[in-house]
Design a protein around this nucleic acid. Structure first.
Lengths: 347, 347
DNA sequence: CTGAAAGCGCTTACAG
DNA sequence: CTGAAAGCGCTTACAG
């Protein structure tokens, strides 16, 4: 017969088992594992032997509950997977693991329909979160923000009034350098620009870079040469087809993104317009496939993995209560291939 | 003055706060949240009102500790990020979230040097894990296997003797169908094959498919036309360059993977050999960039996202103690583009 | 349908 | 340097 409260022994060793085998208290086992400098060498030896022998691994739940921290970082992703996603995750994971933390990954529920009790990531299961997702609405983060819960934004600035650190890439400088190249090296003047989705920050700054370069070179930008590409291949294809049908005159297209550039390339090919001989095309992002387009795409490379690393580093500062930069801006680099008209090949 | 054990109240509401506000016991709050059917409608109402008002979210650590389960699934990744990684993660995340579980992601520590106390993922922080990583060594999973800890392998079969379910794609059938196409539609006979890394299972089965197709068509396979491509662009380039230099005679290359195919394409371009007119090239995987190679790559598409979903579904069966298939094999599909010699374009 | 209370497996002031 | 014991915030038999 069994006592009411005596459950079957767990399938795993607990701290009590280790303490018993080593002949010490559980407090000492805990200290041996967490702050060995507080424990005598001889004791450490006994404890570690027992740990090894029993294959003891501390239960995260118990540890978290007692220490009031989760040792876990959350990463909130957009529902749709970006193409450079793997690289970013690599940076995040590496940095998180190095700090001995765990990484919890979740996707932002698409709609309010999915009545999951609450946010998938928050104070209840993480010590802080990284938010990498298109449109953050204030309502979604305000409660956490109000509590001072540590969070860092990726590729986007916080809603007005909220002081949340964010890390992103230098869209404007990269774009300006790219357009500078088009103007200075190739002498193009009539340059079209394909915008990203309404309200997209990357797009905003890329357009700014485009305009700055034009202005600095004394070029008036022709507003009729600015069309929405939406960072979407098909939409970009249609936009370029439309401009062509309307008889618009342009010598180059700064597509705003590689995705847009692919759509532009398709539209141009369908219209039998030679790239770069008749119209040059350049993108932004340097997706893996940028080397393989016809012709290979001149574009701007962003340090995606580093964005991940920096974001985690910033989050840890927040978690430790240190001050952080409001904004970390990572430099980009123009990658010259052939779609701009250059003949030199990639290094 | 403060009592020794009275800490500062937590920054968040606990179940006790909810119980107090609703005028019920914590047990009732717990039941309302976890098995509402056991609670009277009126009580549920009071509790939920308090939950809402306080913004109460149960602490995962406390819940996990008390319930002896983590409600979390682990995903173990190879240190190097695959190109199709995002898709797989999407499948995994969707399925995990739908079940109301959390997803913990970790990378296999590259070396034994990094003395992290233990495995990043295990019984201490998950209810089961998905292993998606190149070379699983028996030693790494044997302890968990011995305890009957739920795990599922992705893209690889378990070490001999271990009964661990796995899900992967039909490499052999896909490869055979692809080579059938080369032989039946284009009449190629002399076909080279580029192997993956030694011991790689995908490569093994792709080679089997290749050989079966050749045999069924009465073709003897020329062993001197089989070279290591290592699923690595550069190695594949060198392999093809080597075959060319040795004066080997072949009309087509089944590159074994898209990565290999890209290397083959490069080698051929460098040797001024026209693809597909002089030598056809086909791959396997259908990476995003396969549409953009010159010429666009004929290849085999694997249902990557579905692999993720199926793996999670299988893992949940294991967690629930149900029987599972030993092996889930997902069908692949030949994608005809132009590198094989076809002129029809992709749908 | 609901409550009192034990227990989950740790950590950590406090005391020595 | 070490131990006794309270406490972390939940869940869940048991009893009613």
């Amino acid at each position: 017969m069994s006592n009411r409260k005596r459950k079957d022994p767990p399938a795993y060793a607990t701290i009590t088992d280790v303490a018993r085998m080593a002949g010490v208290s559980t407090a000492t086992v805990s200290r041996t594992l967490n702050s060995p400098e507080q424990v005598q060498a001889e004791t450490t030896g006994k404890v570690m032997k027992a740990v090894k022998k029993l294959g003891y691994v501390p239960q995260s739940a118990a540890r978290n509950l007692a220490s009031r921290k989760t040792n876990t970082v959350g990463l909130l992703l957009p529902s749709i997977g970006e193409d450079f996603f793997g690289q970013m995750l690599r940076g995040v994971e590496a940095e998180v693991a190095q700090a001995g933390y765990d990484l919890l990954v979740a996707t932002k529920p698409e709609s309010q329909v999915r009545v999951r009790s609450t946010q998938p990531l928050g104070r209840h299961n993480t010590d802080g979160i990284l938010i990498f997702t298109g449109n953050i609405f204030e309502a979604e983060i305000l409660p956490m923000y109000g509590e001072g819960f540590p969070m860092v934004l990726l590729y986007q600035s916080p809603p007005k009034g909220l002081k949340i650190p964010y890390v992103t890439v230098e869209n404007k400088d990269g774009s300006r350098a790219l357009v500078d190249h088009l103007i200075e090296e190739h002498g193009y003047r009539k340059i079209a620009f394909l915008r990203g989705p309404e309200g997209n920050e990357d797009s905003h700054w890329r357009e700014r870079g485009f305009r700055e370069s034009m202005e600095r070179h004394g070029q008036r930008v022709d507003e009729s040469l600015i069309e929405p590409g939406l960072f979407n291949e098909e939409a970009a294809r249609q936009a370029v087809t439309r401009m062509l049908a309307a008889g618009k005159d342009f010598r180059a297209i700064f597509a705003g993104s590689d995705e847009n550039a692919i759509g532009a390339l398709t539209a141009l090919a369908e219209a039998h317009i030679a790239v770069p001989e008749q119209v040059a095309v350049v993108g932004f992002d340097d997706l893996n496939l940028a080397r393989f387009t016809t012709p290979p795409l001149t574009t701007v490379r962003a340090p995606t993995e580093k964005v991940g690393r920096e974001a985690v580093a910033t989050l840890f500062k927040l978690i430790r209560g240190e001050v952080t930069e409001e904004k970390v801006l990572l430099q980009t680099e123009v990658i010259i291939r052939q779609s701009c008209g250059c003949i030199r090949k990639e290094a």
